[in-house]
């Protein structure tokens, strides 16, 4: 190899190292390392008179409290339940949409998909705020129900768990539709035709061909909705009632209202333990997708 050849291979190696190292170091420092600090603080004690209000003791008292106080386990279970129901609701709304878009004429798919994503580009907070005006006691929904004479005394959805399901399904719908569309669009229509030729009714063909083949999209979409929904704060805070117990809200209150940093850190660590399996599943699914290209 000539001298210039050597220099350029050397250049490639350095360029390559830089391209990998820069984002790698950034994420290690600002995304991964903080979790070590959270772990350390969660073992400390709350000392309101110091700045910051923590003393590192390594006692683990916070974790004893986390399990002894019924509030925390109840909040975790409640969050998992609410996130699971909301994810299912999102799937039920998102799947038919993704399917319909994937079966639309080719020229329509882009704009239809864009229309699903467009709300995501506007403010999340404001979209949740919109539901406050719709679901409140004298909100637009109740005005409509009373005015149309359908229901005389409709009751109030705002402040109930139903409002939270609605809010999550609404806010996270694009995250469900996109991965579903990606698999449904690639689906080989001739398989469905073959099933029909062999005498399968459309529903049977859907259940035995389409649904299993779209499973990667279902798993991907559900994880994209479920994981952040477990730790959701804004939606239960604005749409749920004061008695709605979700772990993201508990963490927020421990930190901002009680200034109890060790407890808030312990809540975060425990949430991470609960979510580590779905997060690893999500990462694996993405890696498989990458490998397929």
């Amino acid at each position: 190899m000539s001298a210039t050849g050597m220099a350029s291979t050397h250049g490639i190696a350095w360029g390559r190292r830089l391209v990998i190292a820069l984002p790698y170091l950034w994420l290690l420092l600002f995304f991964a390392a903080p979790f070590l600090i959270v772990a350390a603080i969660s073992l400390g004690e709350n000392t309101p008179d110091t700045v910051p209000p923590v003393t590192l003791t390594g006692s683990g008292k916070t974790y004893v409290q986390l399990f002894a106080d019924a509030l925390y386990p109840a909040a975790y279970l409640n969050s998992l339940r609410i996130a699971a129901i909301a994810t299912l609701a999102t799937l039920l709304i998102g799947y038919p949409m993704a399917y319909a878009i994937a079966r639309a004429p080719a020229g329509w798919r882009g704009p239809l998909l864009m229309a699903v994503i467009l709300p995501f580009w506007t403010s999340f907070l404001i979209r949740i705020y919109a539901w406050m005006g719709i679901l409140s006691e004298n909100g637009l929904l109740n005005q409509f129900l009373r005015g149309s004479g359908l229901v005389a005394d409709p009751g109030t959805i705002l402040g109930t768990e139903w409002a939270i399901y609605l809010g999550i399904a609404y806010a996270y719908l694009p995250f469900m539709v996109l991965p579903l569309y990606a698999v449904l669009e690639k689906l080989d229509v001739s398989l469905l035709e073959a099933a029909a030729d062999l005498g399968a009714r459309p529903w049977r063909a859907f259940l035995t061909v389409t649904l299993p083949l779209s499973l990667p999209g279902i798993v991907g979409g559900c994880l994209l909705v479920f994981i952040p929904a477990v730790g959701e704060f804004v939606i239960p805070d604005l749409l749920g009632g004061t008695e709605t117990l979700m772990i993201g809200k508990v963490l927020w209150d421990e930190f901002f209202s009680n200034s109890d940093w060790p407890m808030a850190s312990a809540v975060a660590m425990a949430m991470l333990v609960v979510l580590v399996i779905p997060i690893v599943l999500f990462q694996r699914a993405r890696a498989r997708e990458m490998a397929r290209g």
Binding site: I20, Y24, L27, L28, F30, F31, A32, A33, P34, F35, I37, V38, I41, L223, L224, I227, P228, V230, G231, E232, F233, G248, L251, W252, F255, W261, A264, S265, A268, M271, L272, L275, P278, I279, F282, Q283, R286, A287, M290
Partner: peptide, 27 residues
């Protein structure tokens, strides 16, 4: 460290923000 790298890219996409919030602040 490629596997860890893919994890570092995937995790922020789904990590609940309250966890990232407290972690980043403590850093």
């Amino acid at each position: 460290g490629r596997t860890a790298f893919t994890g570092l890219i995937a995790a922020p996409l789904v990590m609940p923000e309250v966890i990232m919030g407290i972690a980043t602040l403590l850093l």
